[in-house]
Nucleic acid binder design. Structure first.
Length: 579
DNA sequence: GCCGTTTTCGGCCCGACTGTTTTCAGTCG
């Protein structure tokens, strides 16, 4: 079964871009952009639906449905081919230059025949842009600098893992400025997208000037891109743009909604506001007739004024969440407060753990967890693994610590290694001594899809394997992971009663939100696991929760939302059924 | 091109900032 949505979405996005370059009506362009996003986010493979069913999806009408059918039948779309023939091949890359939009791209092409960034560079150097309307010396200089930055990075987005610490640092510095009531990072980072294009920091204060100055003068900033009374944009040391917006405290909720996005979500709720005789902007919800202010201090207040339940940030992608919130059928997604324990964590008993067992346990307890599974590496991982003897010694140590930490339940587990044949470390009797195990692939990534899939499914049939760790092995921005049929893993997880991990490390987020959604729909049980190697890593659980929210997972799908008896019952059920 | 608490046509989100515009267009988010 081919999964064609992503491919289709990119074709429609291309149509939208090409239409812009032909000067098409902007609403028509927006319709294609919406169609692309609706296709990309559809929870079912459009290859399996009839044209009538496809046209029922929000944002997809008759015309788009016809083009989808055409693409399925012929492998292409005539309109797209015509546009490709009309627009010069390099023209779309002009739109990737910050500050250069469709109007300027068309102007450059019509007046100077420019249809690519290299041609633009040459024309700038030769002074051929002089005298064109709207392209004075400042604009030309901005274009030169934008072209230089464009050459320095491959694409504009970086893994969220690379932006989080900088965002947190910026937030903390802004929060420390006198007069600041609240500070948060927003944008795609708050929605927990896997990659982000910039960092958005929002501050509530009645005195914006010192906050703006604190950012401009920061040692984290290499260039100020724009500086106004309400908004400042800078380029940071890591080449990532950061936008700062300061609002009054009573505007905080409205600004947080606006700055968190997504853009498509904002457009959707503003349309809803207009239909109800209201105006929504970053300062609040207002009555259109009287101008009276109706909401703005909190996000919940803003959504309520629009007749909506509060929508968790990861769901704000205009993929049906607004309609669901209006009809009271928003999924009650898992929250950090729902987590009672953590099922994957390391100590310095493993070669790669950085903190001692007592420290890790105390840190888990301090974060409000009721139980914590110690899962150091098993012996087959030669560098970091523990022998049987060391494992038994650790178990004895845990026994002692249980008396010292009466309000934290300690589970003794292990992170097992899945061999190429699907076997795991130790023998069945030894494995039966663990309270819980997670089994992961750590070696031989470059095997075929069939081998990898068979390997993991075989491990799932082991009665002592409770969960599969980081099921695809990817590291965002570093490596794609091994080739594996995740749909088959999900089916086997349901069949065998094995849990699938949502590894909460921002570098992994594995399973991804898209796979979480499909696993939840298939009825699988998931874990949200920190995979902590240090005390601070325990805070990564929140990124796992946000990923689970993006995948619309509710607490009943998440193993670590159960109390410890519930967890033990899950482990026992699988052992009894398959032993 | 899509869509309907204004329902099959006439609308389609809203504001900040920049530069070159002497009142606003273009771009961005």
């Amino acid at each position: 079964m081919a999964w064609t949505n992503e491919e289709l979405a990119s074709r429609f996005a291309e149509i939208a871009t090409l239409l812009k370059l032909t000067g098409a009506d902007r609403f028509r362009v927006r319709a294609y952009e919406r169609a692309a996003s609706a296709i990309g986010a559809a929870p079912v493979d459009l290859g399996t639906l009839s044209p009538e069913e496809i046209a029922e999806l929000k944002g997809i009408g008759e015309s788009t449905a016809r083009k989808i059918a055409e693409y399925r039948e012929t492998g292409t779309i005539a309109m797209l081919e015509e546009l490709r023939a009309r627009v010069a091949p390099g023209a779309t890359e002009l739109l990737k230059v910050p500050g250069l939009g469709p109007k300027t791209a068309i102007l450059l092409h019509e007046r100077l025949g420019i249809s690519g960034v290299d041609q633009l560079r040459e024309a700038l150097e030769a002074g051929r842009l002089d005298g064109l309307p709207g392209l004075g010396p400042k604009t030309q200089q901005n274009l030169r600098e934008a072209l230089d930055r464009l050459g320095a990075k491959e694409d504009g987005r970086v893994p969220a893992a690379d932006a989080l610490s900088l965002a947190e640092e910026l937030r903390a510095r802004m929060a420390a400025v006198p007069g600041v009531v609240d500070a948060a990072y927003a944008g795609s980072l708050r929605r927990m997208r896997e990659t982000v294009g910039d960092i958005d920091v929002l501050v509530a204060s009645d005195d914006p000037a010192p906050v703006m100055a604190a950012l401009r003068d920061s040692d984290l900033v290499v260039k100020v891109l724009a500086a106004g009374d309400k908004k400042t944009s800078v380029l940071t040391v890591r080449g990532l743009q950061a936008d700062l917006r300061v609002v009054a405290p009573e505007e905080w909720g409205a600004a947080l909604v606006y700055f968190t996005g997504s853009k498509a979500h904002n457009v959707r709720i503003r349309e809803r506001a207009v239909r109800r005789g209201l105006t929504l902007n970053e300062y609040g919800v207002f009555d259109k007739e009287t101008g009276e202010r109706l909401a703005g201090r909190t996000e919940a207040e803003v959504y309520a004024a629009l007749g909506l339940a509060e929508i968790p940030p990861p769901l704000r992608e205009d993929t049906g969440e607004v309609e669901a919130a209006a009809e009271g059928r928003l999924p009650q997604v898992v929250t950090l407060a729902d987590l009672r324990g953590d099922l994957h964590g390391h100590t310095d008993w493993s070669g790669d753990g950085k903190a001692g067992l007592p420290e890790m346990l105390e840190a888990a307890r301090a974060r409000g967890l009721r139980w914590w599974a110690v899962t150091d590496h098993a012996e087959d991982l030669t560098m970091n693994g523990l022998t049987r003897e060391r494992m038994l010694a650790q178990r004895a140590e845990i026994e002692r610590l249980r008396e010292q930490l009466p309000d934290l339940e300690i589970l003794h587990g292990a992170e097992l290694n899945i061999g190429l044949d699907g076997s795991v470390d130790y023998d069945p009797d030894f494995l039966a001594g663990y309270d819980f195990t997670v089994a992961s692939v750590h070696t031989l990534f470059r095997r075929s899809r069939e081998e990898q899939t068979r390997r993991i499914i075989t491990a799932m049939h082991n009665p002592h394997v409770t969960a599969i760790g980081h099921p695809t092995g990817r590291k965002i921005g570093i490596r794609p992971g091994y080739d594996v049929d995740v749909d088959a893993l999900i089916a086997a997880a349901v069949e065998t009663g094995t849990a699938l991990e949502i590894n909460a490390s921002p570098r992994r987020l594995d399973l991804s939100a898209e796979w979480v959604r499909r696993a939840v729909e298939a009825g699988a049980t998931l874990t949200i696991s920190s995979d902590a190697h240090s005390v601070g890593d325990l805070d990564n659980l929140r990124y796992g929760v946000l990923t689970a929210q993006r995948g619309r997972a509710t607490p009943d799908s998440i193993l670590n939302c159960r109390d410890v008896e519930g967890l033990r019952a899950f482990v026992a059920a699988k052992r009894e059924r398959w032993s």
